[in-house]
């Protein structure tokens, strides 16, 4: 019983920690792209990597202040979004998907390459760039705090606080935009571009705005991740994260303001809870070693998430917040 409570507490900590914030911000960006505008961005992690490395390179390599690093990261993400959008947004949706997935993989390989070592420090990455940010915490970062049955360091708490504030601001921005006529145009583009063109809207410009907006959210996600781990390593930014963020978005409900946020919390909770609880059950012998060894747990938890997603798509295809009527329209 205490194993279960422990696992729950650790799961909750993970669902509220910086990784959940990272996925929430990625998924909010994907929600703007895919959920509202219908853009298939399969390389959201590239924007996150530019955000994270924007800070890391600015601070540890160029010796600039932390806040300049934030601006550099956002600017880099905007430039990448424009570069990706310019040639592809006039074409069919698949071209953006191809270009983004290739860019995400290509940029990571570039950042970890030997020739990039002078700037990104290659596969070893950069660290010690977040002290000035952690020092801003209004409480002591030297000691640990007990919260919901788990222990948090002062720094972790500070990153989580700032991170969730960012998530709240991003959600508010999405909420304001999507109830405005601007958001109405985006949703209409998702349904049928040509109809929107015939009504006198510059579809290309709206798609570009949506791409840039989502990219900026992604960049902030990458920054939270870099600051949370205290290091920026190219291989942290595997494109699998993009698809986990998609999973979080679909879990929560696409084209809903809080869908990506709640989806990320639940996704991280399930991953961590399954991990801790299975390990506890194996170590106290409830699950025999022959059936499942503790080394398999890391993989098994993703299998569980996969099964969960399948059940969700069968019984609740609209996600947690979605509108079933709306989703079933496509099935007609």
């Amino acid at each position: 019983m205490s194993d279960l409570l422990d696992a729950l507490a650790i799961g909750v900590k993970s669902g509220l920690g910086f990784q959940a914030i990272f996925f929430a911000l990625l998924a909010i960006g994907i929600n703007v792209h895919f959920g509202y505008t219908g853009l298939l961005n399969f390389g959201q992690i590239a924007f996150a990597m530019l955000g994270g490395f924007g800070i890391a390179i600015s601070v540890s390599q160029w010796g600039l202040p932390f806040w300049v690093g934030v601006v550099v990261g956002v600017a880099a993400a905007i430039v990448l979004a424009l570069l990706l959008g310019l040639p592809t947004l006039r074409l069919r949706a698949d071209y953006l998907a191809i270009v983004t997935i290739a860019t995400a993989e290509g940029l990571r390989l570039l950042f970890r390459s030997v020739s990039a070592t002078p700037v990104t420090n290659g596969t070893r990455g950069l660290s010690s760039f977040n002290q000035s940010f952690i020092a801003l915490a209004p409480w002591s970062t030297q000691r640990r705090y007990d919260l919901l049955g788990t222990s948090w360091s002062g720094g972790e708490l500070w990153v989580a606080l700032v991170g969730w504030t960012l998530v709240a601001l991003a959600s508010l921005l999405v909420f304001l935009l999507m109830r405005s006529p601007w958001g109405r145009v985006l949703k209409a583009i998702r349904e049928d571009e040509d109809a929107v063109r015939a009504l006198g809207k510059n579809v290309y410009s709206y798609k570009m705005q949506a791409l840039v907006l989502g990219a900026v959210f992604g960049a902030f996600g990458g920054m939270v991740y870099a600051v949370g781990t205290g290091s920026a390593i190219p291989d942290q930014y595997q494109n699998a994260n993009t698809f986990l963020a998609y999973a979080a978005l679909i879990l929560g409900g696409a084209a809903r303001v809080l869908g990506p946020v709640v989806g990320s919390i639940i996704l991280l909770f399930i991953l961590q809870f399954a991990d801790t609880f299975l390990r506890a059950l194996i170590s106290n012998g409830t699950i025999p070693e022959a059936l499942l060894s503790s080394t398999d747990v890391a993989q098994i938890r993703f299998v569980l998430v996969g099964i969960g997603l399948m059940l969700l798509l069968i019984f609740r295809p609209q996600g947690i917040f979605g509108d079933r009527r709306e989703v079933m329209l496509d099935a007609r």
Partner: peptide, 26 residues
């Protein structure tokens, strides 16, 4: 536009809307 309501479909047709610019939408 299937997943927009009938009224939203109609409102999309209006020209020169202020709220269709990003900053003013906020």
């Amino acid at each position: 536009l299937s997943r927009l309501t009938v009224l939203q479909n109609m409102l999309l047709g209006a020209q020169g809307q202020t709220g269709e610019s990003f900053l003013k939408a906020l």
